[in-house]
Design a protein around this nucleic acid. Structure first.
Length: 486
RNA sequence: GAGCCGUUAGCUCAGCUGGUAGAGCAACUGCCUUUUAAGCAGUGGGUCACAGGUUCGAAUCCUGUACGGCUCACCA
């Protein structure tokens, strides 16, 4: 049997139609909003409000009702906040009063017109003079005090989560704000926002497994992008010296509290800059975002306190490892691989992989406050420029906050011959079973052959940044519709 | 992919070592013209995730499946 509350609300809807009232009426345009009325009039005295004789109109969802028989209170919720309304038998027509009492349920949308007054308890309230039925909700809202708790329902029916839980609304407001701040920050510095393909013939720009899709007319497989990097750098070749793209990226990997198959990343590229310039830029950018969302330079995350105070620590991977194990770790392959094996690290004989994995295993968790980790080995950085002093490492860094990688950046490799060789080396590894390694991208190499100015670029994981700023322990809390099994 | 935990009314949750289902909110019917978790009296509402099994008897024990959560693995 169909649910009773649903059937009842449906029959109310039919009755409304029979009475000539459209339960999904259009055309009511509110002239005011709750936030505005509260900020303008909350401090007025009851007498001042009484004298005003001004009428206001609002529209929103009815989120609570307290019925006294001949009068009733309710709360109306909309974009700017919520405000209390009061319906009195004497102040409205018979029809309106019945409409409110018998037909308007919690969850429905209504428009109201009325005047402001203060209740005995001092709450600013709209005395309803006219009521407009806007939308019938056929299903009841989640419970009023506990809200919606069930995690699965919160993710699958995010609209209910947003209706019921203030915190969820705040998280997503912060998310929007973060994105907006980043755009403004880069726009002010003369970066150009661009859009590059999501469908790639070759999945490049990162070390990750791609989603595969198929173009029917061309009868060819295409990959959802794992990074926009190689296209953005083609634009730098084209003379767009400062570009950024903020958008969705897809990686066909495991799902966890820190991984969603589609996630939001910003990448930006600046010609005539080095990775060190980008450390400073990212410090500026993240601090700007933190200051304008948290309001201070410290952020509570889980049981920790993250301090964004500058300057941020800069840690060299090789130095850190030598300090821990002595110089053998970087000079003696035997020592390195034995160490890696003893720590249960899979490296497949790739030096750089062993080094970075050992570093991560040992130091990642200790990097609470923002820290730039640099000195990455060349063989795990096929798109980064070689360091001028040490050809085994590249001019690359990662930003860690709270033990998590938030950003990755480097001076770009703009030597086409070196790039071609790096791709070839990667393709060689790929053959050996490292299937997430790059394949040869001749089209990109030929772009470099036309000359890319010295450039540095960075990618920042927006979801992870928002997690830190909203004290969210799972990436699913900061993505409206996270990936779940259907 | 592995381990652990969970799934009971629209929502939030109880339900003990097995005896056939309970509360609050929501809903419904009354009463109530300043409440805000309004109040009072009454009523209805369940394929206990699904499928098997054990048992005289299963929400409860066992097995499997689905979905979810956490941890680990994988992974920028």
């Amino acid at each position: 049997m169909e649910d009773k509350q649903f059937e009842l609300r449906k029959s109310k809807l039919e009755e409304l139609r029979a009475m000539g009232i459209d339960p999904y009426a259009n055309g009511f345009t509110p002239e005011n909003n709750a936030g505005e009325l509260i900020s303008l009039y909350v401090s007025k005295s009851p007498e001042e409000l009484e004298e005003m004789e001004q009428s206001f109109s609002l529209a929103g969802r009815i989120v609570s009702k307290r019925d006294f028989g001949k009068s009733a209170f309710f709360h109306l919720s909309e974009r700017t906040g919520r405000i209390q309304g009061f319906v009195q038998k004497n102040s409205v027509s018979e029809e309106t009063f019945t409409l409110f009492r018998k037909f308007l349920d919690v969850g429905d949308f209504a428009g109201i017109r009325g005047e402001l007054f203060k209740t005995r308890t001092g709450e600013l309230t709209v005395r309803v003079l006219e009521l407009f039925f806007l939308t019938k909700a056929l299903r009841p809202l989640p419970e009023k005090w506990h809200g919606l708790q069930d995690v699965e329902t919160r993710y699958r029916q995010r609209y209910l989560d947003l209706i019921a839980n203030e915190r969820t609304r705040e998280i997503f407001k912060t998310r929007s704000k973060v994105i907006n701040l980043i755009r403004r920050f880069l726009d002010e510095r003369d970066f150009l926002e661009v859009e590059t393909p999501v469908l790639h013939p070759i999945a490049g720009g990162a070390t990750a497994k791609p989603f595969v899709t198929h173009h029917n007319a061309l009868d060819m497989d295409l990959y959802l992008r794992i990074a926009p990097e190689l296209y953005l750098k083609r634009l730098v070749v084209g003379g767009l010296e400062r570009v950024y793209e903020l958008g969705r990226t897809f990686r066909n990997e495991g799902v966890s509290t820190k991984h969603n198959p589609e996630f939001t990343m910003i990448e930006f590229y600046q010609a005539y800059a080095t990775y060190e310039d980008l450390m400073n830029l990212i410090e500026d950018l993240v601090c700007c975002v933190v200051e304008n969302t948290a309001g201070e330079m410290q952020v509570e995350y889980e049981d920790k306190k993250i301090d964004f105070k500058r300057p941020w620590k800069r840690i060299n991977i090789y130095d850190a490892l030598r300090e821990k194990f002595g110089s053998e770790i970087t000079e003696d392959d035997q020592f390195l691989f034995t160490k890696a094996d003893s720590m249960g690290i899979t490296h497949n004989g790739i030096r750089g992989k062993a080094l970075t994995e050992i570093f991560e295993a040992l130091f990642e968790d200790s990097l609470l406050n923002p820290a730039f980790v640099y000195g990455f080995p060349l063989d795990v950085s096929p798109l980064a420029r070689k360091n001028d002093n040490d050809p085994e490492v590249v001019d690359r860094f990662e930003l860690y906050i709270c033990g998590r990688e938030i950003a990755n950046a480097f001076s770009e490799l703009n030597d086409p011959i070196d790039q071609k060789k790096r791709f070839a080396d990667q393709a060689e590894m790929k053959k050996k079973g490292e299937d997430e390694y790059h394949e040869m991208d001749n089209d990109y190499v030929s772009a470099l052959e036309y000359g890319m100015p010295p450039t540095a670029g960075a990618g920042i994981g927006i979801d992870r940044l928002v997690m830190l700023l909203t004290n969210s322990s799972s990436i699913r809390e900061v993505i409206f519709f996270p990936h779940l099994r259907p």
